[in-house]
C-alpha cells in the first residue's frame, strides 16, 4: 500500500494521472449532479429554518436598500442618457463586448477548515485556462482556476487559506492583501491606513493576476488599536461562497503571472 502511495505520488507529480482524472470527473458528473439536486434543497431548507429571524431582518434591510437602489438607478439612467448624448456629440465610440465570460455550474466542492475548492462543468474546450479569474453571477470575484480538464476545471475560492489577492478600499484607495484564512474567512491584511466597517474592497490590479476594480467584499469588522501597524480587518464576501451554484469565468483576461502551485 505504501508502494502504491509512492507510485501515485510520482504519477501525480509527472501529470500521468491527469487524463484519468479528466475521464473520472466526466464519468461521475451525472452522479454529482443527482446528489446536488437531491441534497441542496434539503440543506437550503435546513439553513433557512435555522436563520428565520436573521432572514426577516435581512429582508427588511434589503427592501430599504432596494428602494434606494431604484432611486439611484433612475438617476443613473438619466446620467447615462446624458453621457450618450455628449459622446455622440464628441464623436466618441463606446467600446462594448471587451469582456468574455463563460457561465458554468458548480459540480462539486472540497472544503475543510483550510481549503475551499470547487469543480465546475466547463473546461479547456470552452477556452478556460489555468489562472483565469472566476466571478459570481453578480460579477464579484470568487476565485481562480487552478487545474483544467477538457470538460471541467477546479477553482480555488477566495476563502481558501492559500488564496491571496492584491486589493484596495474602493473609496480611499488604501491598498492591502485579501487573504483566505483557516475557517474559510477573509481578512484584508497589510492595510497601512484607516479602514472602516462598511468599506468596499475591490481588486487593485497590482501583480497582474486580476483585473482592477472587481468587487471582493465589504469590511465587516476592524479590530486593534490606532497604535498597531496593521489592524485586523475582516471582510465579508459579497456572495456566499459556500453556496454559489453558478459562476462566470473571465476568459478575456489573461493573468500575467500564473501561480497556482500547491495542492
Amino acid at each position: 500500500m505504501v508502494g502504491l502511495a509512492l507510485l501515485l505520488a510520482v504519477a501525480g507529480q509527472t501529470g500521468v494521472l491527469n487524463p484519468f482524472q479528466g475521464v473520472f470527473l466526466k464519468a461521475t458528473s451525472p452522479v454529482s449532479g443527482a446528489f446536488n439536486g437531491v441534497f441542496r434543497p434539503v440543506a437550503s431548507f435546513l439553513a433557512d429554518a435555522g436563520d428565520l429571524r436573521a432572514i426577516q431582518a435581512e429582508n427588511r434591510e434589503l427592501r430599504l436598500e432596494n428602494e434606494e437602489l431604484r432611486a439611484l438607478l433612475i438617476e443613473g439612467q438619466r446620467d447615462s442618457e446624458r453621457v450618450q448624448e455628449l459622446e455622440e456629440a464628441l464623436g466618441i465610440l463606446e467600446r462594448t463586448g471587451d469582456q468574455t465570460l463563460v457561465a458554468a455550474s458548480v459540480v462539486s466542492r472540497a472544503s475543510t477548515s483550510f481549503d475551499s475548492v470547487v469543480s465546475i462543468n466547463k473546461g479547456s474546450n470552452d477556452g478556460i485556462k489555468n489562472g483565469m479569474v472566476v466571478l459570481s453571477s453578480k460579477g464579484t470575484l470568487i476565485g481562480t482556476v487552478t487545474k483544467t480538464f477538457p470538460d471541467s476545471c477546479f477553482v480555488r475560492l477566495l476563502n481558501d487559506s492559500r488564496s491571496k489577492v492584491n486589493a484596495e478600499v474602493q473609496q480611499s484607495k488604501v491598498r492591502g492583501v485579501v487573504r483566505g484564512n483557516p475557517g474559510r474567512t477573509l481578512t484584508f491584511d497589510l492595510a497601512e491606513a484607516d479602514v472602516k466597517v462598511g468599506d468596499i474592497i475591490v481588486t487593485s490590479g497590482l501583480g497582474g493576476n486580476y483585473p482592477a476594480g472587481l468587487p471582493i467584499g465589504r469590511v465587516s469588522e476592524v479590530s486593534g488599536t490606532a497604535q498597531d501597524l496593521y489592524r485586523k480587518v475582516n471582510v465579508e464576501p459579497m456572495v456566499r461562497l459556500s453556496t454559489a451554484t453558478t459562476v462566470l469565468v473571465l476568459t478575456s483576461f489573461t493573468p500575467q503571472r500564473i501561480d497556482v502551485s500547491g495542492r
Binding site: 500500500m1 505504501v2 502504491l4 502511495a5 509512492l6 507510485l7 501515485l8 505520488a9 501525480g12 494521472l17 484519468f20 482524472q21 473520472f24 470527473l25 461521475t28 462539486s108 472540497a110 475548492v117 469543480s119 487552478t146 487545474k147 477546479f154 495542492r263
Partner: peptide, 22 residues
C-alpha cells in the same frame, strides 16, 4: 477499498491521492 477511495476522492477534490492513501 482504501486505494479505491483515496484515488476517487483525490480525483474529485483535486488533492493528492497518494496523500489520502497514506
Amino acid at each position: 477499498g482504501t486505494p479505491v477511495l483515496a484515488i476517487s476522492l483525490g480525483f474529485l477534490s483535486d488533492r493528492s491521492p497518494a496523500l489520502l492513501l497514506l
